[in-house]
Every structure is written in structure tokens, then in C-alpha cells.
Design a binder for these strands. Structure first.
Lengths: 218, 218
DNA sequence: TTCGTCATGTAATGGGTTACATGATTAC
DNA sequence: GTAATCATGTAACCCATTACATGACGAA
């Protein structure tokens, strides 16, 4: 995959990639944080998939502040714990506003290209815990068909150009192909799990426990 | 990997990523071509790793033309074959100049970060057939240690933040980790093969067949 | 004749990195 | 007191995409 990482991006997506916004909002929803910490958490949560520098994070925070989606906030240390483990904060702590939460929900609910194209998928996936089950499924399926489409058109292109490629090029193509196939299998498994879960939820709901289940399935 | 493709890029590399230049030069070295065809071949050779649009290709060609690394050239169809299968060309065919070939060799010989960071590796690898064996090895090893470094710092970061992550985040992190580990295994195999090959070459060379082997090993 | 593909290009735009500047805290 | 890390920011730059404009050619 890391190779993959090299992947610039399919020249399709790349429209209004507001991924940082989602990431920041999502992270801040879990708990207020300052920029420096935000970046670290960001690059841990997104694992090997994406990394942001301060040069993009701070301007983003600035903009979110300007649009009123977040506000500065200093948690006012309880002062009853003068020890060094006082939550590590030091300067500007950001917090979601009501509008910010709304915006986050909006972003988490969109199951469109932005959520399954290369740039967006990782970030959207990272916050699946806060995403509606049906949206999760749509995104996973969207991603899968996107990848399958890619595999197909790649294979078609290969078939069209009946040309001898040297062994290294071939090696690269195979590695890429296998990587994508591997991701498709991964998606298949996730989709299977989602469906199974949804089925149980549905059954439970139909069984009459409407209130209980819809309340704690989250 | 495709997920991987999402990967923006580690915020490290990204300095002077003259990958398109290398790709174009490399492709034109194999055979003269016009822009449209170039782009297609490009996106096939690079497989699932990279895609370029005309918006970057044509300006690149323009620049290469300006620096004298390529020239326009019309192969002058033999005219003895008026059939439609006249190699599909129609407008501006580009061809490497002597300077272009030199530049290509230069690019193919650099075994530095540019050749093993995310953005560059795929392109450099794609033209390994024209790369010196020792350079190939250095690049593969460079890439591997880059990835291992990444794995290590990621694991370290995970260990540092003793925090509960939800199951989706965990899933994403694991998938990413496994993808990178998979690429490392792939690299290990390639490196093994390269070493074995080099060993045979060395033995053959030491055995006194200096001229013969160095001529047709390529 | 019109539609799809081939073919070449440009301008606006965008998102992100790099490099730099600065200062506060903590650890030695 | 000094080095490392934490912490916040800005400006210049880069690479590539998107969208658009244009036109030739072959097939229906």
C-alpha cells in the first residue's frame, strides 16, 4: 500500500477535497484539543494513509474559527491536580460549536464520491463509529465499485495494448493489481459484517423492541 | 493499496518531484510517441500507482521541448502502407534528443530519496530495466528502510498514546499496517532476487568472462 | 451529419508542503 | 543555562487537477 501511497490520485476525484475539515471536526468532536496535538492524533488515527503538516492544519483551524464551526476554549484546569499530568495542554484549545457539530453530521452523512474516492475514503472511514449504519454501507460499496471499476479498466487497457512489457514493469503492475484486489477483499469482509449487523438490528426491531434497540445500537 | 492511493503523501518527500519528466523521458526512450498516446501508456505502465492528466502532461512536454531534451518529429510514414493501421499517430510525435538521453541516464542513476519516497518510487521502479543493477538495489533498499522507519514510528506513536480507539479506526490502522508490511515483504523478495542475480554476475565476471557477460547481461 | 474518440492545448484553481520565524516549557 | 520538545503561525512555492476551448477523423 505504501507504494500505493505514491499514487497521486486517480485524475477523477480531487474536487473540493475538504478532508482536513472533516478530520479536524471529527477529532474535536471526540475531545477538545490544540493544534499541535490535533496533528499528532490526526496522523495516528489516519495511520499510514495520510499525513498533514502544520502548514495546512493551522490555516484550516483559522478558517473553521472564522466560519464559527469551532471556538477557542481554555478548559480551566481544575487546579486540584497540580501534578505534571495536567492533560498536556498549553495554548489554544479548540472545541466544536453547535454549528460545527451540525457540519460534522452533514459531512458524515454524505455518501458520495468524496467519501469513497482515494483522498476521502480513509478519513471518512476513520470516523465510521459516528456514521449512520446505512451510510457506512453505501460508502463501503461505493468504494468497492470504484476499485472494481479501476481494476476493470486497467485490465481492459492491458488487453488492448498487446505489448511486451519488461519484467519490472510487469512486477509493478502485478503488485498494484494485487494491492487493489486485496483492498477489495477487505471491503468485502467489512461489507459482510455490516450487513450481518444490520440484519440482526432489523430483526430485533421487527421483533417489537423498537425503542430499546434503536436507542443503544448507536 | 488503492486505499493507499488515497494517501496524500508522507509530508516528507515532495521536494522537486520531477516524476513526470522521468516518466516521459523513459517512455520516449522506448519509442517516439505523441502526447495523447504518451498519457495512455503512462497510465498503463504505472498501473494503479499514478495517473496524469493532459493538463500536466502537455506543459511538461512543452518544457522538455524548450530545454531541448526532446524534439518534435514526424516519422514520415513509408507510404507503402496506405491502410488504416498506420501506427495510429496523427499529430506531434516527440523523440528524445542526445541531451534527453543523457538526462534520462542521470535521472535513472540517482539513488536518493526522490527515488524511494512515495511519489517517486513507482516511476523509478517502472524503468528499472534501464537502470544499473547496483542502483536498483540501492533504491529497493532505500525504499524498504523508508517503509520500516515508517512502521516503527507508527508503532511507537501507537504505544505512546495509550488510548482506546474505536474498532473502525483500529481496522483502518491494521489495514494500513498490513499493506505496508506487505510491501516490505515484496521488497524483500525483489532484493533477494537482485542479490542473487548480482552474485551470479559477479561470479561469472570473476571467472574471466568479463566481456561476454557484461555485454549481454543488461 | 452527427457522435464518439483522437488530439492538443490553456487558464484558473486548489490543496498541500517546505522553509522559516518565534516563543514557551520541560529536562538535564 | 541550554538543548529538546512543545506550540503556533506565515509566505512562497509546487505540482497537478479541472474545466474549458478547439479541431480532425472515422463510423453510424
Amino acid at each position: 500500500m505504501a507504494l500505493s501511497r505514491a499514487v497521486g490520485v486517480r485524475m477523477s476525484g480531487r474536487k473540493g477535497a475538504r478532508e482536513l475539515e472533516l478530520a479536524v471536526l471529527g477529532l474535536l468532536h471526540e475531545s477538545p484539543m490544540h493544534g499541535y496535538e490535533l496533528r499528532k492524533r490526526l496522523n495516528i488515527v489516519l495511520g499510514m494513509f495520510r499525513a498533514f503538516s502544520y502548514g495546512s492544519l493551522y490555516p484550516c483551524l483559522k478558517q473553521l474559527l472564522a466560519t464559527g464551526l469551532i471556538i477557542e476554549d481554555r478548559p480551566e484546569e481544575p487546579a486540584n491536580a497540580p501534578l505534571a499530568l495536567q492533560s498536556r495542554r498549553s495554548k489554544i484549545v479548540y472545541k466544536l460549536t453547535a454549528e460545527g457539530k451540525e457540519r460534522l453530521q452533514e459531512l458524515l452523512t454524505e455518501a458520495g464520491p468524496a467519501s469513497w474516492e482515494d483522498e476521502g475514503f480513509g478519513v471518512h472511514f476513520a470516523f465510521f463509529a459516528h456514521t449512520r449504519a446505512d451510510v457506512r454501507l453505501r460508502i463501503l460499496e461505493g468504494r468497492r465499485s470504484r476499485l472494481e471499476e479501476r481494476l476493470e479498466s486497467f485490465r481492459a487497457a492491458l488487453a488492448r495494448t498487446r505489448e511486451r512489457v519488461d519484467s519490472y514493469t510487469l512486477e509493478l503492475q502485478n503488485h498494484g493489481l494485487e494491492s487493489v484486489e486485496r483492498e477489495v477483499r477487505w471491503l468485502n469482509e467489512l461489507i459482510g459484517r455490516e450487513r450481518a449487523e444490520q440484519a440482526t438490528t432489523d430483526r430485533a426491531t421487527q421483533a417489537g423492541e423498537i425503542n430499546r434497540t434503536s436507542k443503544d445500537d448507536r
